[in-house]
Nucleic acid binder design. Structure first.
Ligand SMILES: [Mn+2]
Ligand SMILES: [Mn+2]
Ligand SMILES: [Zn+2]
Ligand SMILES: [Zn+2]
Lengths: 149, 149
DNA sequence: TTAGTATCAATAATCATTCTTACCTAAAAA
DNA sequence: TTTTTAGGTAAGAATGATTATTGATACTAA
């Protein structure tokens, strides 16, 4: 993660161009937000952030842009929460953890993960994978906060 | 899988009792359907099947029952499809594959999977996990059916 | 029996996401 | 420059799976 992404509009511009995405203002803004945050944001959260700079934008536009970004592989969509999607600029396959207590979502590194290292399983071609872990995060364990929200 | 489940109402009755679930007709019926199918069924599909025997039942009841079953760990819910959940009677942790072409969902066995063998990762306590794989299944590869639906 | 509790069906409500439509913009063509 | 064209966007309606609510019924324990 460190240094892989830098947070300038120039960078977003370059990345969009590299992926054959016409860089409109709205698309640049959405992409920059994801780059800057380096977090997992819902469409709603992204919409709220874009609206600060572009008050006229609509949620549907954000959804459309995220959909395009997904197809062009400039964002990763995760469905670790049942009721809504999150998006992130990190696109290399990696797993996620959702804490039942604090509801935080963060990346998980499984040391040698066979799932991440193979292209096929039992003859089936893997084009995408998602690993979701649910439980109690380290911080909440320390707080002895055992009951889920 | 072979022989682990048998498909009688007696078996459903026993399993519900073992999990402190009062065995109503509706609950037994939903459970039996999942046992018999040994597949991944949506709430809608389960509802349609229950309705054959119990025409008065409503979708909300099926959702309520599935929710109870989840809490009591007699079913496993998988969210490999973005728009709806599937349920299965198999409750030991295992991964799933969704084929983009034929839309089939099936179990995947990762030989030694560290994720399935550990209770904590980086200090975080894992209480549940889901591994979702997306791509082209063996059968569709054989058919040389390369384009997703 | 009777009060208290749990379950259920039906309906309405929720709410993230998608669809539809009309307008707008920017570049290509003339 | 003017016209054409394609694509992008905003707004609001529609979708559809799931959840909440509610009133009725069935079970349970004393
Ligand atoms: Mn991530
Ligand atoms: Mn399964
Ligand atoms: Zn936590
Ligand atoms: Zn297939």
């Amino acid at each position: 993660m460190k240094g892989v992404y830098s947070y300038s509009m120039d960078n977003s511009l370059r990345i969009l161009k590299e992926h054959d995405i016409r860089p409109t203002q709205q698309r640049l803004e959405v992409h920059l937000i994801l780059l800057k945050q380096a977090k997992h944001l819902t469409a709603e959260e992204i919409y709220e952030k874009v609206k600060v700079k572009m008050p006229a934008i609509s949620p549907a536009t954000v959804y459309t842009i995220l959909d395009l970004f997904k197809q062009k592989h400039v964002v990763n969509e995760i469905r670790i929460q049942f009721d809504k999607s999150c998006f992130e600029a990190r696109i290399d396959p990696h797993h996620h953890f959702l804490c039942k207590h604090c509801r935080n979502i963060f990346d998980i590194n499984i040391k040698p993960c066979p799932a991440l290292e193979t292209r096929t399983i039992e003859g089936n071609l893997i084009e995408e994978l998602q690993g979701y872990f649910y439980g109690t995060c380290r911080k909440c364990l320390e707080k002895n906060d055992d009951k889920p929200v």
